[in-house]
Design a protein around this nucleic acid. Structure first.
Length: 683
DNA sequence: GTCACAGAAATTTTT
DNA sequence: TTTCTGTGAC
């Protein structure tokens, strides 16, 4: 386990300095005075040095949540807790890294005073999914899970569901059976919320009621197929972790590992996750959770706000500490954010307060169309830059990934560099998945999804044949026998010599004697002609594959690379190796609001704050709209000093003419007259 | 069973 | 516009 944390650290080490500068309040020249390093207020102190029963920290936006958690970890270590006996569960790997990095800082400060040296790197840190994977590789055999299982990402899972859906003949148009994506959504909600499929369909997908029986059957087959292929999807990782804890033989081994479990962003956990915690920390012993119910924005992933609200009920003897002192934003901004969250029907969080000097009111820019919005944003960004606020301390936030397309074009035209977070990920593009499928197949030959994907890339072999070949291989007595079977097989003419070449590649990849780099090089060589044939613009795609090769350098071996790329894919252009290093590294950030969670900037622009976008018109019921409100709240609480809320009246110059985003839109209903009073309007 | 083609659908958010 | 799905020719 030590290894992995070390790797995380190594992996991000270069970026570290950059990241912290970028997202922290460390720019004294322009930022508001933030809480001095090393000092804690009374509430924070109480949380940091709490000992005894379970601890719930309710931390409003910008109240120094990370800092408190970091200091708590350091304090625990100072109390003599072995770092390797601390488990830190965060929402993203990046958050885990940042915390570990800062724990190191605090420890170094302490070490200077005490001349003791503690290695923080043995702390277990990561997302629920990443930690689950590690534990499953260690103890999975107790529940009959092979060590070399591979992980299906969302696309793979949908693909498998789609295949089964077709096999069950549910794909006839006249049937109007839900598409694979919808099936997957239902399945995932079911898996993560433990609500029976029937109830779920009745309540949330009533128009699919007539298909319930078939859906259940479909999911059943899906589960069997995954099991057979030794593959787990995202949801399985949590479910199997729970199974591990329910297993009498292993549970003790795991609970004995940890004295303390700390969970960040607790408001966005689901019931499976809270069950895991309950078994991991019986009676809440050594359990600390941190969260803010006003920032719960992941219910589409079956997160339930009840987890945080009912925590004291679930764990008797809970100590609750509430952090209300905000160190991030100016009082003028807080006035707005407090007013916004006031609209919420159900509200548990109190108002935030700040000691900073009042500054300019947040700006509401109501303009004619989306083009004007872009012009305004770009000119303000440049203006702020002139005032000494670098691009990296500014961010533009939006509801959906494609909302930034128009802006991206304009930024490119003006030669302003930016990084975008959220939306389709690099490794999710078809050509990357193609390439990765070879490696994954070599890793786990039972992985049906990877097998079918890679085999059917050969011309003359389609999905059907690929599946038969894959199943033949698995059915063979052992690896060598499988290979013999394959060698005997006569491919159709159109396959040409590709079959022989493929066999050679497959043998090489599975030999176990090649470095990861070499494996990728060979696969790339094999795949390049296929790619050139398959896609028109192969140049850009080839460049992407080269990037993957560079990324691969960071990983120890194939297992680690495959796991990492699925659980923690590079989420922005920033995390990819940059071929133009010489460029100044002052980048503007563009981000979906979801991906902006936990971050902060001096100046924040929230665009498309018009009804239909915020709240999204996909959210229909009250609960959905409430979540949209919290989402908007998350967006505006990211700002330290300058906040801009932009809302065009019309959308024409649309990115995608096929969407129905066009037309007139009102100002978001979240900007009611009370909120408006806290803003200064600009036209 | 494979593959090329035409027509339809589609983007909300993510581990 | 791109991606997915279903159809029909080989």
């Amino acid at each position: 386990m030590k290894k992995t944390t070390k790797k995380i650290v190594k992996k991000y080490a270069k970026k570290a300095a950059k990241t912290t500068v970028k997202h922290s309040q460390k720019s004294p020249d322009i930022s508001q005075p933030s809480q001095p390093v090393g000092t804690l207020n009374n509430e924070q102190k109480k949380a940091v040095s709490h000992s005894g029963g379970p601890l719930l920290i309710i931390a409003g936006a910008g109240t120094g949540k990370t800092k408190t958690l970091v200091h708590r970890v350091a304090w625990l270590i100072g109390q003599g807790i072995e770092p390797s006996r601390i488990l830190l569960l965060t929402f993203t790997r990046r958050a885990a890294f940042e915390m570990l990095y800062r724990v190191d800082d605090v420890l170094q400060q302490q070490a200077r005073q005490k001349t003791s040296f503690v290695d923080h790197r043995s702390i277990w840190g990561g997302t629920f999914h990443a930690v689950a994977t590690r534990l499953l590789r260690m103890y999975g055999n107790a529940i009959k899970l092979p060590r070399d299982f591979t992980i299906l990402d969302r696309g793979d899972s949908e693909g498998l569901i789609g295949t089964i859906r077709a096999e069950m003949k549910l794909d006839k148009a006249a049937l109007k059976f839900p598409k694979k994506g919808t099936c997957m959504t239902i399945y995932s909600l079911h898996a993560n919320s433990r609500v029976p499929v029937k109830t779920l369909v009745d309540q949330r997908f009533p128009w699919l009621k007539s298909h319930t029986a078939k859906l259940v059957q479909l999911f059943d087959t899906y589960e069997k197929r995954k099991l057979n292929a030794a593959t787990l999807d995202y949801d399985d990782l949590l479910i199997y972790w729970l199974k591990l804890l329910e297993n009498k033989e292993v549970v003790k081994k795991i609970t004995d590992r940890f004295d303390h479990v700390l969970v960040d962003e607790y408001q966005d956990t689901n019931v499976v996750q809270s069950d895991i915690l309950r078994l991991l920390c019986p009676k809440g012993k050594g359990l600390t959770v941190v969260g803010d119910d006003a920032q719960s924005i992941y219910s589409f992933r079956a997160a339930t706000i009840r987890n945080i609200l009912d925590f004291p009920k679930q764990f008797s003897g809970t100590t609750v500490v509430t952090l209300e002192q905000n160190y991030r934003s100016t009082p003028t901004i807080l006035k707005t954010t407090n007013q916004v969250i006031d609209i919420a029907k159900e509200r548990y969080t109190k108002n935030l307060r700040s000691d900073q000097e009042p500054d300019v009111k947040p700006i509401l820019f109501r303009c004619y169309d989306d083009n004007m919005q872009v012009q305004f944003v770009v000119s303000e960004i440049l203006h702020l830059k002139k005032q000494g606020i670098p691009f990296k301390n500014q961010a533009v936030l939006f509801r959906a990934s494609h909302h930034s397309l128009l802006l991206e074009t304009e930024l490119a035209r003006k030669k302003i560099l930016f990084h975008k977070h959220g939306g389709l990920k690099f490794v999710e593009s078809a050509h990357l998945k193609d390439l990765i499928s070879f490696l994954r197949f070599a890793e786990n030959q039972r992985d049906e999804t990877a097998a079918v994907r890679s085999l059917s890339l050969l011309s003359g072999i389609g999905e059907k044949k690929a599946l038969v070949l894959a199943q033949d291989f698995v059915a063979a007595e052992d690896f060598a026998q499988g290979l013999v079977k394959w060698k005997k097989w006569k491919p159709p003419k159109s396959t040409g010599n590709m079959w022989t070449k493929f066999l050679k590649l497959f043998e090489e990849l599975t030999s176990g004697s090649l470095s990861l780099e070499r494996q990728i090089a060979l696969t790339l060589k094999f795949y390049t002609p296929i790619l050139e044939d398959k896609y028109d613009e192969h140049k850009t795609r080839l460049a992407d594959l080269e990037q993957l090769r560079e990324i691969a350098l960071k990983f120890k071996d194939r297992t680690e690379m495959l796991t990492d790329l699925t659980l923690d894919p590079p989420s922005s252009t920033e995390e990819l190796p940059n071929r133009n290093r010489k460029q100044a590294d002052d980048y503007l950030t563009l981000s979906t609001i979801h991906s902006a969670k936990g971050l902060e900037w001096n100046s924040v622009f929230v665009i498309n704050v018009s009804d239909g976008f915020i709240p999204s018109d996909k959210a229909t019921d009250t609960e959905g709209v409430e979540e949209e409100l919290r989402l908007f709240y998350v967006a505006i609480t990211r700002a330290q000093q300058h906040l801009y809320i932009c809302s065009p009246k019309c959308f024409f110059s649309n990115f995608n003419s096929w969407s129905n985003d066009d037309g007139y839109r009102d100002l978001s209903r979240f900007i009611d007259h009370k909120v408006k009073k806290t803003l200064q309007e600009k036209k």
